[in-house]
């Protein structure tokens, strides 16, 4: 399956109808910055292209590498920002905390205050991540929310929620699934979805 499980048309629904106050402000700011020669329309277009196409792939590549290189994995867990910099990825946030799933621990990420998200690593956050429903519920009934994503965490496994409420950004290091022995990093990266890096699903070799 080439397509991801999210609906792009819904992500774009704010394009319909009259522009909101914030859209008007954003456009006015853009026009001013262009008129003053601070940015060009081409730079802006390129940036949006990166968010849509390039950035979402970065997280999967980094995690696939962590699966095959134990030293890199350790560096990622100690200082995520520095480990990503090895790949030429500038996270644009002060810190990245990578949290590792184990047979006894499952991690899931939320930002209850807004929608903080490691965008330079995972692209733009999905609509559900920004929804009030997810933000309100995943902190108080994470297991129920995970079940709605089709992810059932056994009772004996701790579920740990990370609220990305201030200066840190987070990424989950999922467990490498069984049945992937001998796979190339590229093939491993193909089963590492954005949702698994937020912690609402786990990678599956049969995807």
């Amino acid at each position: 399956m080439k397509h991801h499980d999210h609906d792009h048309s819904r992500d774009r629904s704010f394009d319909d109808g009259p522009p909101s106050e914030h859209e008007i402000m954003s456009r006015a700011m853009q026009e001013l910055l262009e008129a003053k020669g601070v940015i060009t329309a081409e730079q802006l277009r390129r940036r949006m292209e990166q968010f849509d196409a390039e950035f979402p792939q970065r997280g999967a590549r980094v995690i696939a590498h962590a699966w095959v290189d134990a030293d890199f994995r350790q560096r990622l867990l100690v200082d995520g920002k520095r480990a990503c910099a090895e790949w030429g990825i500038d996270l644009e946030a002060d810190r990245l905390i990578a949290v590792e799933n184990t047979p006894r621990l499952h991690n899931v990420i939320v930002c209850t205050l807004c929608s903080c998200y490691p965008r330079a690593l995972l692209g733009m956050p999905p609509t559900w991540y920004k929804s009030e429903n997810y933000r309100r519920r995943v902190v108080r009934e994470p297991r129920a929310v995970l079940r709605e994503f089709g992810t059932v965490i056994p009772e004996e496994v701790e579920v740990r929620v990370h609220d990305s409420n201030a200066d840190m950004r987070y990424v989950v290091v999922p467990m490498r699934p069984a049945g992937t022995d001998g796979w190339s990093e590229e093939r491993l990266a193909s089963i590492i979805t954005r949702d698994a890096l937020v912690g609402v699903t786990v990678p599956d070799a049969k995807r």
Binding site: R140, R143, V159, R160, V161, H162, S164, A166, D167
Partner: peptide, 19 residues
């Protein structure tokens, strides 16, 4: 989690971390 929510329905060992 049991400290945060008196009616928490998940496991005793569940936690939440934030800044």
């Amino acid at each position: 989690q049991r400290e945060l929510w008196s009616d928490y329905a998940g496991s005793e060992s569940d936690h939440l971390e934030l800044e």
